[in-house]
Design a protein around this nucleic acid. Structure first.
Length: 599
RNA sequence: GCCCCCGUAGCUCAGUGGAUAGAGCACCGGCCUCCGGAGCCGGAAGCGUAGGUUCGAUUCCUACCGGGGGUACCA
């Protein structure tokens, strides 16, 4: 957890003073950890160091706390200190401290809350997410990884790290051939087998390819020539998709039905189209990847073979029954994994290893994988593979997110084999919007299974928390707009007397503004986007209360003697509102949820 | 069988060792002469069970109960 004293010089100073007080009181040295008390009556910061010290010092915690209080020299920004409960030492910050917060927010602007790190503290993080196979449209669950991965990336950047967003495209191998074969068979009007991809989108692809390349494309076979630089264009209209048949036994006969090279070629084209479509959908959700990493290119460049050779040379492999195994059990995996099948073809796991090597060689200091719970079984072998390749254990981080239940009116949307109707992500985004979709996913912990009820999300859209937050933002804008229209003389922040902000609602709001740096640091460290959405809701709530209780612009019907005071107070409140807008805007920017001027 | 996640208010979820466990929805009662009522204020209601560690456990450990997912020379 980020230490508050690393983020705030005042806290750092206070930590020093506590340490000195311990020394002056003849107590053992200890790290004074600070936390924010839940109850406002308990002050702004508390340390539990007296409770921790009770045992080693063999004195009652309250005595120790009192000794600290007796010996401490308070920094100027700390107004008071007191002893409470079993031995808490509570500190209350001065009003001047919070006035400074408002000034800092306005001065730093978009940078407020973000962390600057020294070169030594700064990581170069690669975060891989979504990476859905480009053999079909994205389902709703992928939306969760899109929203969460993207916001986490933004959060890590805000925490001062370098970040690369990456999508691994499985565009090689057996599944591409099978995908291409599915398209060809559909184009020829032939029956599909159980292990073929099926769905309206396969028909769409077949139709499109026919339009672009001609009817012969599906019948000529191996002899056909494909110009490498042929532009692939055309709108893909994917709507209702029948679920592809899965889990079927591998049917060797299916391989003979379409010439392998033709199937592979068509599959390649289909994959490119699907990948473009996926990129479009993700873009509609505000997600832009820095790297689309092609598995096929990696194979073409011999990186997979090279990696297998490296592993063999390092003595991490052995042969058995004609297959080459990687000894992943050495590194805690349940069983050793096949790198090269007995028929000589490398497995996908071999490609995963090569991909690891490539990523690590790109000078990242940390590799984050965001995977769904359905891939939980891969974690052991991925970690083992990374270690086999010499990637330090603590540099690879695999986050498992629980799955999304797609519901309609409280009933699960069936995903049965043939008849099941699957709702794609682009349909959802189109129907409920990117902001609602993202926010819904970002609000929940990765450890929680999310229910995404199409009816509820649409029906409740007007009472969705995202609107509560956006409404607060729009409301502040409206206020500032109105101030301008009325010619309210808000002057410069430097001239405003922020000392006038003493009402409870004002204090609460300013304190909330002061929390942002810590919230960002903790959320980034815990990889927990829900910390930010909660904070956004709390901040919006604080603003709404402030707005309700505190008149900002002076009323029209004031006597002259009241007017001057009201305007003075109004100026201070105006700048508080400006700071609130800045902070709320900064949070929404990290979440990549829009901050509307009006709604 | 083994592995992972979850069990907190009527419902959906926050809270990864601290003080009186918090939001939203739903329910009940208040607040519009003036800046956006998509708002504000108040009320009722909860840590699956049993042990353990600790000054202190919703949080960490063990067992059990209940729900979800995973356990391929698949891709």
């Amino acid at each position: 957890m980020a230490r508050p004293e690393d983020l705030d010089p005042v806290l750092a100073e206070l930590a020093t003073r506590v340490t000195k007080a311990l020394e002056a009181a003849g107590l053992p040295a200890a790290d004074p950890e600070f936390e924010r008390p839940r109850q406002p009556e308990h002050g702004d910061w508390a340390t539990t160091v007296a409770l921790r010290l009770a045992k080693p010092a063999r004195r009652p915690p309250r005595d120790i706390a009192q000794a600290i209080i007796d010996h401490i020299e308070l920094p100027e920004a700390v107004e008071s200190v007191d002893l409470a409960g079993p031995g808490f030492v509570n500190f209350r910050l001065s009003h001047a401290y919070f006035e400074e917060v408002v000034r800092t927010v306005v001065a730093k602007g978009d940078a407020y809350g973000r962390r600057q790190r020294d070169a030594g503290q700064r990581e170069m993080i690669n975060i891989e997410f979504v990476s859905a196979n480009p053999t079909g449209p994205l389902h709703v669950g992928a939306g969760r990884w899109a929203a969460t991965g993207d916001a986490l990336a933004e959060l890590l950047a805000a925490d001062g790290h370098g970040v690369v967003r990456e999508y691994y495209v499985n565009d090689a191998g057996e599944q591409v051939r099978r995908f291409g074969e599915s398209i060809v068979l559909v184009a020829r009007g032939e029956e599909l087998d159980d292990d073929h991809y099926r769905g309206e989108y396969i028909h769409d692809l077949a139709r499109e390819i026919r339009l672009e390349f001609g009817e012969d494309f599906f019948t000529v076979g191996d002899g056909i020539h494909f110009p490498e630089d042929q532009p692939i264009t055309g709108e893909l209209s994917i709507r209702r998709v029948r679920e592809r048949a899965a889990d079927g036994p591998h049917d060797a006969a299916a391989e003979e039905r379409v010439e392998p090279s033709l199937a592979a070629k068509i599959g390649e084209i289909g994959v490119r189209k699907m990948r473009d479509h996926i990129a479009d959908v993700l873009r509609a959700m505000g997600v832009e990847f820095d790297v689309w990493f092609s598995e096929r290119v990696m194979h073409d460049q011999g990186a997979v073979e090279q990696t297998i050779e490296d592993l063999r040379a390092k003595g991490e492999t052995y042969e058995e029954d004609g297959a080459l195994f990687l000894r992943t059990t050495t590194y805690g995996d349940d069983k050793d994994r096949v790198l090269v099948r007995s028929d000589g073809r490398p497995t996908y796991f071999a490609a995963d290893c090569a991909y690891f090597r490539d990523k690590w060689n790109r000078d990242h200091t940390r590799l984050i994988y965001l995977l769904g719970a359905d891939h939980h079984g891969y974690v052991g072998r991925l970690k083992a593979a990374a270690r086999s390749l010499g990637i330090p254990q603590d540099r690879l981080e695999i986050r498992i997110g629980q799955l999304v239940n797609l519901l309609r009116g409280g009933e699960p949307v069936r995903m049965s084999k043939r008849a099941g109707e699957l709702i794609t992500l682009d349909e959802v985004v189109e129907e409920v919007g990117s902001d609602v979709t993202r926010y819904h996913f970002l609000r929940q912990s990765l450890d929680t299974t999310v229910d995404f009820d199409l009816d509820e999300v649409v029906k409740q859209s007007m009472e969705n928390p995202v609107y509560y937050v956006q409404y607060a933002f729009a409301r502040i804008n409206s206020l500032i707009r109105l101030a301008d229209e009325r010619g309210f003389a808000h002057g410069e922040l430097a001239d405003a007397d922020l000392g006038l902000l003493t009402a409870p609602a004002e204090q609460e709001l300013v304190r909330k503004l002061a929390e942002l740096p810590g919230v960002i640091a903790d959320a980034a460290e815990l990889r927990a986007t829900q910390r930010l959405t909660r904070y956004a809701e709390e901040l919006a709530s604080s603003f709404h209360r402030f707005y309700t209780e505190c008149r900002i612009l002076p009323s029209d019907d004031l006597a002259d003697d009241e007017r001057a005071a009201a305007e003075e107070l109004g100026r201070a409140r105006y700048w508080l509102a400006v700071a609130a807008k800045q902070v709320l805007g900064n949070v929404l920017a990290i979440l990549r949820v829009s901050a509307p001027e009006r709604m």
